[in-house]
Design a protein around this nucleic acid. Structure first.
Length: 325
DNA sequence: AAGTTGGTCAACCGCGGAGTC
DNA sequence: GGACTCCGCGGTTGACCAACT
């Protein structure tokens, strides 16, 4: 037996919403709320629209406090980081960006951010394998520049060359980039996130140092392809538990509490990462040559393989520090 | 100036999960 | 436990616009 249609499509208007329809929907929702039933709502509101369409219009456009327009560098970083960790879980990502909708973020990723990232990754892919591995490892430890040239001009530093394992709760030996080919598996092992305790869970005391916030975690992923999506199957659950709560002001509190510091826009982040970027490592390696196109999966895989926690900083812009563990 | 191409973004589609009966 | 309904999500489409040829 097939699924019943959510509404009578024959009598439903489709396409762009008119200002009148917007006004009707807004007025109704402000007066009555959804009433817990989107399907019945359009009829009550006097709209010849599908309930799902109403819901989408409200959530993506009419809802109060919706933020439109340019994404900040900060938002870029959060999106990249979360995408690297959890993939295209746009609703979860959106929950960490107040005022942004999942649709907005999805569009932004598909049209702009992905290309931005590919601009970084593509040059890597034509390196010799050894260099490519190095580049992909570096990616997760560097800022997402507005252009490859800005990446080149960036000075990448990290607080040290150690990575911190939340599994062992101790600092381990630094990773050296000058010692030959990099083992991606070691990075993955060192850097996979641990949602409950670190990624979405409460920040541990030892994770907050010098105004740095932490997320990232221990070795829960050892897949050879570096993909960590499976390991994130509990993200929603964890999110519900830790992130989907509200504070006293009934404001949603979520992962942003661990992504933003008190200054909000000037936060510093500590992320799980297996690789460390040295200042100047990239210098002279940027090829600027033509490279094969990368698909979404490759992007994700490249990020994930090297770290499962790539996070891209632009040191010049924000002066952020990166710590690895 | 006209046609083509590419980018953007609002909206649609269909699926899976959760809740209810 | 199964059928059914609704919600929410992610992928995709298509209209619109600007840049390019």
């Amino acid at each position: 037996m097939g699924r019943a249609p959510c509404c009578d499509k024959a009598n439903m208007k489709k396409g762009p919403w008119s200002p009148e329809e917007d006004a009707k929907l807004r007025e109704y929702l402000e007066k009555h709320g959804t009433g817990g039933n989107w399907i019945a709502l359009p009829q009550k509101a006097g709209l010849k629209r599908c309930g799902k369409s109403c819901r989408l219009r409200w959530l993506n456009y009419l809802r109060p406090n919706i933020k439109h327009g340019e994404f900040s560098d900060n938002e870029d970083r959060i999106i990249c980081s979360l995408y690297a960790n959890i993939g295209s879980r746009w609703s979860i990502i959106a929950a960490q960006l107040p005022g942004r909708t999942d649709n907005d973020i999805k569009n932004y990723w598909n049209t702009k951010l992905k290309k931005k990232l590919m601009g970084v990754i593509n040059p890597i892919s034509q390196r010799k394998p050894q260099q490519a591995a190095l580049f992909s490892s570096l990616l997760q430890a560097t800022s997402l520049p507005s252009s490859p040239s800005s990446l080149l001009s960036s000075s990448f530093t990290c607080s040290n060359n150690s990575y911190y394992s939340t599994q062992t709760r101790s600092f381990t030996e630094p990773i050296s980039f000058s010692s030959g080919p990099l083992s991606t598996s070691s990075f993955a092992t060192a850097s996979m996130i641990q949602p409950r305790e670190t990624f979405l869970g409460p920040v541990q005391n030892d994770q907050v140092k010098d105004n740095l916030l932490v997320f990232g975690g221990d070795a829960s992923c050892s897949s050879s392809d570096g993909s960590c999506s499976n390991q994130m199957s509990h993200v929603k659950e964890e999110y519900d538990q830790y992130g989907g709560c509200t504070n006293n002001n009934n404001e949603q509190m979520g992962l942003q509490n661990y992504l933003y510091n008190e200054d909000g826009d000037d936060q510093k982040l500590m992320i799980s990462s297996g690789a460390a970027a040295h200042g100047g490592v990239l210098s002279g390696l940027w090829p600027g040559d033509n490279l094969p196109d990368y698909g979404l999966e490759e992007i994700k895989q490249l990020i994930s393989t090297s770290s499962c926690n790539s996070f891209l900083f632009d040191e010049n812009k924000t002066g952020e520090k990166v710590m690895y563990y």
